[in-house]
Write a protein that binds this DNA or RNA. Structure first.
Lengths: 317, 317
DNA sequence: ATCTTAGGCTAACTATTACTAATGCTACCG
DNA sequence: CGGTAGCATTAGTAATAGTTAGCCTAAGAT
């Protein structure tokens, strides 16, 4: 059905130059080869592309038609190839990144913005979600790399963990907290599993993974069912829920440091140390990262280090 | 600079199927060949097009980019090829036709219209002008064929007359004429060269070729200079000029038959017979006409024959 | 007129390379 | 835990793209 594509390329140059000899020069082959190629193409398509007028080639209608198809393609291709090639020199193209919801919403857009100031050729495609969503997408190649809350996955099983490389980026203390009023009314010093498990909870994900994990970490067991009174994919909403005595929620401590200091929010302490939630960079072990990826990851880690444990993240949140 | 085009075609199918094996099936070659082709293309472009994930190929950004360029092209190409191929079955495409101004203006549009009713795929590009303009364009291949007033070229020299095939289509009597009043006032029976050459003339072309040829035909010589009082590329305007006693003009007799009969317009007779202006079909001798051309020329001659010596042409004029 | 140049076509030979067949590797599936 | 599916690799062969040489014709040049 489709003709030999290289013959189309030759035709393109013949048409451009209206000459076999000139096309041959352009293509760095002999005129004979060009002539033969043209004949083959014509018999392949079973149509005359040029009327031969001694020393002149005049395109037929079919020739014109074919050129009209080829011309934009070859222009696009030249530009495209140049573009693709330059991506080896300077970062460009699309980065597809998986991220925890809150981190992706609050911190990354600002980072993207400053990255793009330096590398305007780069665009981003961000997938917000649980590690349970992000890991498979990395594996399937639909994400270039991911940022995941390792805390959430500590107890989850990934059979093929070996295929990933996981580098910790950020540590954040994760606490269970409620408002002062709620604490006085509902907890009042009783930090036992039995007491805590029956309270109202705020969750910022569809699943109550975060909450469950908090219990597992502190009591080595998880409650069967939690009374979730509000679910919302927004950290700030959870904090506001806490402040308004809606219930208890798991949050990063630094976000509410001021509130804790001033006694408006009370963290629930237990004998075990606070959970450390590690946001880690997850990549495919055996996939060589592109220049763009390497540059961005470098940029990301630098930014995190320089801003002293998530200053930027905190401020924006 | 540009990669091997056939490799692009292979890439296209790999991308479509996201599989070397399936692409191989589509292309009727072995998977090995496809794999090798892909590797060659990648090293040619110096870029990874797919990340290999064991049994899965996931396009990189570069792969996506390349596909975005190829996809529309291949779609267009498939449609285009189909179109070009069908032009062998039914007339389609563009016919570039040269024609005398008046004939092309008055007669051809109507003919095009009825032709297109039968063959709607055909479009026309008409070049109106002298044989001196039309012949070179046929020779250079910029016109598929031409219609020319042979009368005008009788005495003109074309060195390479042999390269054309010339078939008479229509004969028309050409006369020099003026209004009754102008005749009485200026001519009054004196049809001598000396008397006629000094009158006012109307010409419907930039050059006064037509007028000159009339003199050459009737007196075997042409006046050095003619007093052209109006030049306009419209036959009807010339006739109106004649009727309004602006001067004398050369016109086809059938157009003004009624006026002559009723004595409003007087033809200038001389001992020699009236000029016969033959409109002929001119084609390049050694150029095989396409189906579209043959069909149209057939249609044209049939129409002329059936309408009895230019009935249509006359009516419209 | 005759020669020269330019552009294109063809035929036969040569060199490249596209393709195959055979084999190996590894994740996934029952 | 074999069996299968899918891709990669290698070496050898078949196909074809390209070269060289020679011919033809129209236009310019001498």
């Amino acid at each position: 059905m489709l003709p030999d594509f290289n013959r189309l390329k030759v035709f393109y140059y013949i048409f451009l130059k209206k000459s076999v000899v000139n096309a041959a020069g352009k293509l760095n082959i002999t005129a004979s080869a060009v002539s033969q190629t043209l004949n083959k193409l014509e018999s392949e398509l079973n149509v005359l592309l040029f009327t031969r007028l001694h020393k002149k080639l005049v395109p037929t209608w079919a020739g014109h038609q074919l050129f009209e198809i080829l011309n934009p393609f070859i222009n696009d291709l030249e530009k495209g190839i140049k573009h693709i090639r330059q991506a080896k020199q300077i970062p460009s193209g699309m980065l597809r990144i998986g991220s925890p919801i809150e981190f992706g919403k609050s911190y990354l857009p600002g980072l993207f913005s400053s990255f793009r100031k330096k590398y305007p050729e780069v665009v981003f495609d961000m997938k917000l979600g649980d590690p349970t969503e992000v890991f498979p997408l990395i594996k399937s190649g639909d994400l270039d790399f991911g940022l995941v809350d390792i805390f959430l996955t500590r107890d989850q099983v990934f059979e093929d963990f070996g295929i990933y490389s996981i580098d910790p980026l950020i540590d954040e203390e994760v606490i269970m907290a409620c408002s002062k009023e709620y604490y006085v009314r509902e907890i009042n010093g009783d930090h036992s599993f039995k007491n805590l498990a029956i309270k109202e909870f705020l969750s910022y994900q569809k699943s109550s993974l975060t909450l469950m994990n908090w219990f597992k970490h502190h009591f080595k067991k998880a409650p069967v069912n939690l009374n979730r009174v509000m679910t919302v994919d927004n950290h700030q909403a959870v904090i506001n829920g806490i402040k308004n005595q809606l219930g208890m929620g798991v949050i990063a401590s630094h976000i509410v440091r001021k509130d804790i200091k001033q006694g408006r929010i009370i963290p629930i302490k237990t004998p075990s140390k606070d959970v450390i939630n590690t946001i880690s960079l997850v990549q495919l072990q055996d996939k060589e990262p592109s220049l763009t990826e390497k540059t961005f990851i470098n940029f990301l880690t630098k930014d995190i280090l320089s801003s002293g444990t998530l200053k930027t993240f905190i401020n924006i949140s």
